[in-house]
Amino acid sequence: MPERPDELDRAILRELQGDLPLVSEPYREVAERVGISQEELLQRLEVYLKRHWLRRLAGVLYHQRAGFKHNVMGAWRIPAERRRAAGAFMASLPRVSHCYERPEFPGWPYNLFTMMHGQTEAEVQETVEEIRRGVQPEAYLLLPTLREFKKTSMQYF
């Protein structure tokens, strides 16, 4: 069984799922809140990264305000034997932020998904063309966001 977060881990992750304070020593503040030293916190964070509980500590942007106004989901039909190579190709493109294989079902013949982001519509279209040329999909759909009903970060703990 993989390691699961214990009570102290959860307290730390609770702090990190939100916002680190923008101060000179942000980790010291978090350490004080959970009652450990900064050294211990930094050691634990290294372990979390190794265990992959944390993908990274980093900044997260509002796409739109950062200039990426065109966000489109692509659904692609790729035969099974070419799927792995196609996924790797799509993932290599900088304007593709997410790429997954998901199951088909009756009426839904698409099996690879990409999230694509561009500062202009032309940039997204360019990425679509790169994918079309690169992986030769049997069919595909472009599904732009028409309305955002909810967009938030998960509160895990």
Binding site: L13, L16, D19, L20, H52, R56, L57, G59, M154
Partner: peptide, 18 residues
């Protein structure tokens, strides 16, 4: 300016058992 949403941990959903 609401360009930066937050600075913090990016948690790996499945690796913490979700």
């Amino acid at each position: 300016q609401k360009v930066l949403r937050r600075v913090g941990g990016i948690i790996s959903t499945k690796d913490i058992g979700f």
